[in-house]
C-alpha cells in the first residue's frame, strides 16, 4: 500500500491541483467574497513611495512583463496605474519587453479611459512603447532619452508631446515604478539606473514570486519598495482601495484579492502534499529498517 502510494501516478496530484485552483475561482467568482489581507511593511513602503510624492510628480512606469505573467503582475500594474492616476501624477509608460506596449495599452483602457476621463494623452500620460536592447536601453535613457525614444508609440515626435517638455533623460523622473517578470527587469533597472545615480533615481517595483528573493539584497538602499507576487499585489490593492476605493471598490480593482483564494487552497494542498510525501517516506524507512 505504502509502496503503491509512494509511486502514485502524478496525474492524481495534477487533478488535485486543478481542483484546488478551479473550485475557489468558481466559488469566489460566484459569491465575490475575498479573504482579508494585512499589508506588509514592503507593500506599505511601495504605496508610500508613490503616495508621499507631491501631486503631479513624474512617474516612469516600466512594464517589463508579458501576458504569461499577467496572472501575478496584471493586478499590480492596474493598481499602480490607478494610484498614480488618483495622485494626479504624470505617467510615462515604456517597456523593455516587446509585448509590454499591449499591456500598457490594456491598463490605460482599463483604468485611465473609464475612470479618469479628464486625463489627456500627452499631457497626463504618454506611452513611449517598446525598445529592444534590454539593459542597453536603460543605460542609454538614464542619460539620453531622445536617442532611443525620439517619438512615442504613435510616432508623435517627443517635441510635440507637452509632458515630454524638458525631459532629457529619466533622471528627471521623480520615481520609477517597474513591473517586472524577469530579464530585463527590476534587477537591471537597479543595476543600470539606480546604482550609478543613487541620489537621482529612485525605484519601486512589483515582481513575480520567482524574482522576489533575488531582489531582497537590494532592499532598502537600492530598492525601497517591492511587491512580491500575487500576495504583494493583493496587499497593495488593499492599500490603494482603502485610500481611494471607497466602501465598494470596483471589482476590477480586486483582481489580486480574488486571486488569493485559489492561492490559499493551492498552498494548503502543497503543504499537505509535502506532509504526505514525508509521512510515506518515514513509514517506508521504518519498514525498511525493521526488516
Amino acid at each position: 500500500m505504502i509502496e503503491k502510494l509512494n509511486n502514485l501516478d502524478r496525474r492524481w496530484i495534477f487533478l488535485l491541483m486543478f481542483l484546488a485552483v478551479a473550485v475557489p475561482i468558481y466559488v469566489i467568482g460566484k459569491t465575490g467574497k475575498t479573504f482579508p489581507e494585512t499589508p506588509s511593511a514592503l507593500a506599505k513602503a511601495t504605496f508610500d513611495a508613490i503616495d508621499d510624492l507631491p501631486d503631479g510628480s513624474r512617474i516612469l512606469l516600466a512594464f517589463d512583463f508579458d501576458p504569461a505573467s499577467e496572472g501575478e503582475l496584471g493586478p499590480m500594474a492596474t493598481a499602480f496605474v490607478r494610484q498614480c492616476a488618483e495622485k494626479k501624477h504624470k505617467m510615462y509608460f515604456l517597456a523593455l519587453w516587446p509585448v509590454g506596449p499591449q499591456l500598457i495599452q490594456a491598463n490605460i483602457e482599463k483604468v485611465i479611459l473609464p475612470d479618469f476621463p479628464s486625463y489627456e494623452y500627452g499631457r497626463d500620460y504618454v506611452n513611449l512603447g517598446f525598445k529592444s536592447g534590454n539593459e542597453g536601453v536603460i543605460k542609454v535613457i538614464v542619460t539620453d532619452l531622445a536617442q532611443l525614444y525620439p517619438a512615442d508609440i504613435k510616432g508623435t515626435p517627443v517635441e510635440k508631446i507637452p509632458m515630454m517638455d524638458g525631459i532629457r533623460n529619466i533622471q528627471a523622473m521623480d520615481l520609477i515604478v517597474n513591473v517586472s517578470a524577469g530579464y530585463p527587469g527590476t534587477k537591471e533597472w537597479v543595476q543600470y539606473a539606480v546604482t550609478p545615480y543613487p541620489d537621482k533615481i529612485r525605484i519601486v517595483a512589483g515582481c513575480t514570486g520567482v524574482q522576489a528573493p533575488l531582489l531582497y539584497p537590494y532592499i532598502p538602499q537600492q530598492l525601497p519598495g517591492l511587491l512580491g507576487a500575487i500576495k504583494g499585489a493583493a496587499e497593495y490593492e488593499k492599500l490603494v482601495n482603502d485610500r481611494y476605493g471607497g466602501p465598494h471598490p470596483d471589482p476590477k480593482y480586486l483582481e489580486g484579492l480574488r486571486r488569493m483564494g485559489p492561492q490559499l487552497v493551492a498552498h494548503i494542498l502543497m503543504i499537505l502534499l509535502i506532509i504526505a510525501g514525508n509521512t510515506l517516506f518515514f513509514l517506508q524507512r521504518r519498514r525498511g529498517t525493521s526488516r
Binding site: L8, I13, M17, M270, L273, N278, F281
Partner: peptide, 11 residues
C-alpha cells in the same frame, strides 16, 4: 510544483 513537492521534498 505540486508533483515536485510530493516527490522530491523528503527529509
Amino acid at each position: 510544483v505540486a508533483s515536485a513537492a510530493f516527490r522530491a521534498f523528503r527529509a
